[in-house]
Amino acid sequence: MKKSAINYFLIAPALLISIAIILVPGILTIIMSFTDWNGISPNINFIGLGNFQELFADDVFWKSIFNNVKWTILFLTIPVALALLVSALLVEKKKSRSLYQVIFLIPYVLAPAVNAMLWLNIIFNPMSGVIGYLRTIGLDIGSPLTNMSGALYAVAAVDIWHYWGYLSVIYLAALRQTPTDQVEAARVDGCNAWQVFRYVYFPSMKSTFKLMYVMIIIFSFLAFDYIKLLTGGGPAHSTEVLGTYAYTFAFSALQVGKASAVGLFMSFFGMIASVIYTKLSKNEEIA
């Protein structure tokens, strides 16, 4: 293919926007993580690894990482299992599957802000929500969002409710690429439903399954919206994750240097996962 100069001009808008908004500020963040900048003062002092030393000595920082890990484990199990089950059920329902897909995707296409307010007020509100009503009829399950040990699970439940339908649609799209004659052949050979899924359907979605696994790990370390909206990281940092922790440093405590250091950590986990992701998708292209 001819590499004429006009092609550089064509790719420029996308690349320049990305460089100006993401790459340059990203590099600035890396530099800022070694300073004590507060966002306002023109005095910026390099303090070496000071921010990182303070972070490592901070219990909330470790709590946040631990919560991110918990979040990752929750998302790698519950929505994955649910989406696998549903996509396996839907792959043979040729007539009704688009209706079910639309239903399962509705929570996914609604804004996190709307979903969070909806659960906060109609489900979790101890006065006017379903939780409050259950208590009046004698079924007291406490107040999940203000409970130190349960709040993270309550928030994750809302995010999983919003997310899993998307995963099932991706899985289903991959399963549909299975050649139907292979499925028929397995049936004729007397395979039961589980065997057909395990040995015929699943191999054809394996690459998608692996890629989504990596994507879930990456996005679990970026978790922010639902936690910020439902608990703001509380009560007493029990739902704090790196995303909310960095945000609070930057805009409430005005410690931009420290916020940058946390941001750098978030990227670090994502970077490891995305290297794996790139490797995996390269292998897929060759295969």
């Binding site: 790719i11 690349l15 990305s18 908004i21 993401i22 790459l23 500020p25 990203g26 600035l28 963040t29 800022m32 966002g39 990456i218 370390f221 970026l222 922010f224 790196l242 995303g243 960095a246 945000y247 930057a250 805009f251 931009v256 916020a259 940058s260 946390v262 941001g263 750098l264 978030m266 990227s267 994502g270 970077m271 996962a273 995305s274 992701y277 790139t278």
Partner: peptide, 24 residues
């Protein structure tokens, strides 16, 4: 190289570029 760059840009946290961008 551009594809790899966009792959990275897709998975980078907003908190990596938000703060300098905000103050700018």
């Amino acid at each position: 190289g551009v594809l790899v760059y966009f792959m990275m840009a897709m998975t980078v946290p907003i908190q990596l570029f938000l703060f300098p961008l905000y103050y700018a």
